[in-house]
Simulated scan of single mutants.
Amino acid sequence: MPVDTLPLCGIGDEAGASAAVQTGALNELGWPLIELRSVDGTALADLGEAAFADLAGAVHAAGLRVHCVDSRIANWARPVTGDFDDDLRELDVLAERCARLGTRYVRVMSYPNDGLRPGAWRAVVLRRMAALAARAERAGLVLLHENCAGWAGASADRMLQLLRYVDSPALRLVFDTGNGPAYGYRALDLLPALTPWIEHVQIKDAVVEGDEIRYTLPGHGECRVADCLRHLLDRGYTGALSIEPHVKVRPHESATAGDDETRAAFVACGRALEELLGRIRKAAA
């Protein structure tokens, strides 16, 4: 697919807390898609019915389509020893809400360890992920496992083990270009083995400064975002590119900064991605 036809997207709560700010930032960029995670600090699955209806209405009124929703299923806050029913309940809520939002993609992870021996950790993860994928398949959803927290998060080999064990069209991958510094790997090292399974891409970039990670505009860090994009494009990737800047805030981990500040940083990251894609297009011409 030509680089200039890839759909562009962004995780809304990285622009601000409210639905109005989130949709407004995507409209300012002129992009067609939004990725939803939380509104006013509340996770999508925890919104009351009225709040969810307001969110769906705001997305529709803004002329946007929802590409993916980001769940807490198996994520960094839900270790492998946690209550599996929490994840099953969240998936059931999101199945109904995804149908109303017009998306089938749900971002998941694969359970951080919490004192289990390696073999036991692996066994619980595989069993749980297979059950989640079976439930998702019945609901018409696709779970997208992220290269982030959990048993399979930082290893291409483990992600492939997970995919082969589950063996379901309801489990595929989302690849985040900027997670490597936090989890001890280089994105481009994982990417070749995983490319056939990737159905969504999240864009962030970062530099490591001593013991700290500082997130940057796409293409301004050490994550080789342009090389990752070239690799995907050369191999026929046709999915969306969704920014998750982390430049000002990480709203899934803490309260947001002021909406004006976070929205401006979000839009700047979007423009940086457009510029990066423009350079890739020019080099390929």
Rank of each mutant, 00 (worst) to 15 (best):
N75Y: 04
A268Y: 09
R37T: 08
P245L: 12
V39M: 09
R65W: 02
D46T: 02
V247N: 09
M159H: 09
W197L: 04
G30Q: 03
A285P: 11
A17W: 01
R78V: 06
L277F: 07
R128K: 10
H231K: 06
G12T: 01
D83S: 10
E96A: 14
A264S: 14
T177G: 05
F266T: 01
D40R: 08
L241V: 06
R271E: 09
V106A: 06
T238R: 15
M159C: 12
A51E: 14
A257E: 12
L190A: 13
D85R: 14
A226P: 02
L276M: 13
R104C: 06
R89Y: 00
L162T: 04
E212R: 15
A20C: 00
L47F: 11
Y185H: 00
V21S: 02
A257N: 03
A284W: 13
T195N: 00
D13L: 01
A17I: 00
D83I: 10
L26G: 01
R72Q: 13
I34Q: 01
R107L: 08
G115P: 12
D176S: 04
V207H: 05
W76K: 13
V225M: 09
Q161M: 12
F266C: 01
G180S: 10
A133K: 04
S254R: 14
E212C: 01
R122M: 05
L6Y: 08
I280F: 07
S242F: 09
E35D: 15
A99R: 14
P218E: 10
Q22E: 09
L160S: 02
E253D: 14
D46M: 07
F84H: 10
T262M: 15
V225I: 04
E146S: 07
P32R: 05
L160M: 09
G219L: 10
L194Q: 03
D227L: 09
N27Y: 00
M109V: 00
T195A: 15
H67W: 05
E28P: 02
C98E: 04
L29I: 05
R235P: 02
W76Q: 10
A264P: 04
C228V: 02
A240W: 11
L6C: 05
V125Y: 07
R104H: 11
E90C: 11
